[in-house]
Amino acid sequence: MSERAVPFYCPYCGDEDLRPRAEPHGAWLCSSCRRVFSVKLVGLALTEVTDESTLG
């Protein structure tokens, strides 16, 4: 498994011309909108998600 996951498009403008950035760690630069962003996996949802308003 690689250390860095590669995004396919910018989450802000949708452009596909992305370049890795050294700082902050794991960041990507969008050449179109000039935003620097990172993508982070938080975890897996292994249980069913319930709506808290129905818990009563």
Rank of each mutant, 00 (worst) to 15 (best):
49 V>G: 02
9 Y>W: 09
19 R>F: 15
6 V>G: 10
15 D>R: 03
49 V>I: 08
2 S>I: 02
26 G>M: 08
2 S>Y: 01
13 C>L: 06
49 V>Y: 01
17 D>W: 03
56 G>N: 14
36 V>M: 13
55 L>H: 05
15 D>M: 02
43 G>I: 05
55 L>W: 03
1 M>P: 04
47 T>E: 00
27 A>I: 03
42 V>I: 12
2 S>F: 01
35 R>F: 09
31 S>C: 15
13 C>E: 11
54 T>A: 05
14 G>W: 04
24 P>Y: 06
20 P>Q: 08
21 R>H: 13
16 E>Y: 11
3 E>W: 00
47 T>P: 01
51 D>C: 00
47 T>K: 00
39 V>P: 04
25 H>G: 08
2 S>E: 02
8 F>N: 06
6 V>S: 12
52 E>Q: 09
7 P>L: 09
7 P>S: 10
40 K>I: 04
21 R>C: 15
37 F>I: 00
45 A>W: 00
42 V>E: 09
16 E>K: 10
20 P>D: 07
24 P>S: 06
32 S>W: 12
26 G>K: 11
43 G>V: 02
20 P>T: 07
13 C>Q: 11
30 C>P: 11
16 E>C: 10
40 K>A: 08
30 C>R: 09
37 F>S: 04
17 D>A: 13
2 S>D: 01
22 A>K: 15
22 A>R: 15
29 L>G: 08
27 A>N: 04
40 K>N: 14
29 L>Y: 03
18 L>D: 04
34 R>K: 05
47 T>Y: 01
14 G>T: 06
31 S>T: 06
46 L>K: 07
34 R>H: 07
45 A>F: 00
43 G>Y: 04
35 R>K: 12
46 L>E: 15
34 R>N: 14
44 L>E: 02
56 G>H: 12
24 P>H: 06
11 P>Y: 05
11 P>R: 08
10 C>S: 13
1 M>T: 03
32 S>V: 12
23 E>Y: 12
20 P>K: 07
35 R>I: 07
50 T>N: 14
12 Y>I: 13
6 V>C: 11
54 T>Q: 02
20 P>I: 03
11 P>F: 02
43 G>D: 11
1 M>I: 04
43 G>W: 00
42 V>F: 01
6 V>T: 12
54 T>V: 05
51 D>W: 01
41 L>P: 00
46 L>W: 03
21 R>T: 14
12 Y>L: 12
40 K>T: 12
51 D>E: 04
6 V>I: 14
4 R>C: 11
15 D>F: 05
7 P>K: 11
1 M>S: 13
12 Y>E: 13
40 K>L: 07
25 H>D: 10
9 Y>P: 00
22 A>Q: 14
42 V>P: 06
24 P>V: 01
5 A>K: 04
22 A>C: 09
26 G>W: 02
50 T>A: 14
3 E>V: 04
14 G>Y: 10
51 D>H: 03
25 H>T: 14
12 Y>P: 12
27 A>V: 06
19 R>C: 15
7 P>N: 13
